[in-house]
C-alpha cells in the first residue's frame, strides 16, 4: 500500500459517505442518476467475486464488502426509500449502451479467458464509463447540488490517484496492468470537464452550473 493507493481509497470511501449523507440529510436523491448507481453495483459485484477466490488482507476484504453493501444500500435509497424524489425523467441514459460494449470488449481484450478474470475485466471496463449516466443527467438539468458536486469530485479523484499509484508501482515494483491503466485513464479523462467547472465554481463558493 503506497500513499497514492491509500489516498485513492480514502477518496473513494469519502465519495460513498458523501453520497449516502446527501440522500439521508436532504431526504432526497434529486439530481442523482440511479442508472450510474446500478452500474456501480454491477461493477462491485462482478469485480469482488474474488472475495471467494483470493484473500489479500482484512483491509482488502472489508473494503470490498463495504463497497458492495453500500452500492446496494444506495440503490435501495434511490429506488425504494426516496423514490418520490428520484429524477427519473432526466435519468434516461440507456445502460445497455454501456453494458453490452463492455461485456463484448471483456470477451475480446482480457488477460485470460476464465470466469473470474472475465468478470474482473468487465468490471474494470464498466467502471470507466459508469459515471456517464450521472454526467448526462447533469448536462440535461444544467446544474448539480453542491454536495453532489463534492461527491463527483471525490469519485473522480479516486481514479486519478490510482493512476499515480500505478506509476509508482511501475517504477518501484515493476508491476503494471495495461487493462486497469487504460480504463483508469479513460475514467479520469471523463471527469476532466467536471473537474474544471468544480474548481472554477464550487471551490469559489458558487453553485455548480454548466456554462450557458
Amino acid at each position: 500500500m503506497n500513499i497514492f493507493r491509500f489516498l485513492g481509497d480514502a477518496s473513494h470511501f469519502a465519495a460513498i459517505i458523501i453520497l449516502v449523507l446527501k440522500i439521508w440529510k436532504t431526504r432526497s436523491c434529486a439530481g442523482l442518476s440511479g442508472r450510474s448507481q446500478i452500474a456501480f453495483a454491477i461493477v462491485f459485484t462482478t469485480r469482488y467475486v474474488d472475495l471467494l477466490t483470493s484473500y489479500v488482507s482484512l483491509y482488502n476484504s472489508l473494503a470490498k464488502i463495504i463497497f458492495i453493501f453500500s452500492s446496494y444500500a444506495t440503490l435501495y435509497l434511490i429506488y425504494f426509500r426516496f423514490k418520490a424524489t428520484y429524477d427519473g425523467n432526466h435519468d434516461t441514459f440507456r445502460l445497455e449502451f454501456l453494458l453490452v460494449p463492455c461485456a463484448l470488449l471483456a470477451l475480446i481484450v482480457n488477460h485470460r479467458f476464465q470466469v473470474v478474470e472475465l468478470l474482473w475485466t468487465f468490471s474494470i471496463y464498466l467502471e470507466s464509463v459508469a459515471i456517464l449516466p450521472q454526467l448526462f443527467l447533469i448536462s440535461k438539468t444544467g446544474e448539480a447540488e453542491t454536495i453532489t458536486s463534492h461527491y463527483l469530485f471525490s469519485l473522480g479523484s479516486y481514479r486519478g490517484l490510482y493512476i499515480l499509484n500505478w506509476i509508482y508501482r511501475y517504477y518501484v515494483q515493476n508491476y503494471y496492468d495495461l487493462i486497469a491503466i487504460s480504463a483508469g485513464v479513460l475514467q479520469t479523462l471523463l471527469y476532466c470537464d467536471f473537474f474544471y467547472l468544480y474548481i472554477t465554481r464550487v471551490i469559489k463558493g458558487k453553485a455548480f452550473a454548466l456554462p450557458a
Binding site: A63, F67, H111, Q173, Y176, D177
Partner: peptide, 10 residues
Amino acid sequence: SDSSKKHDEL
C-alpha cells in the same frame, strides 16, 4: 500479468 497482485487493488 501477475493476477495475484491485482486483487489487492479495489
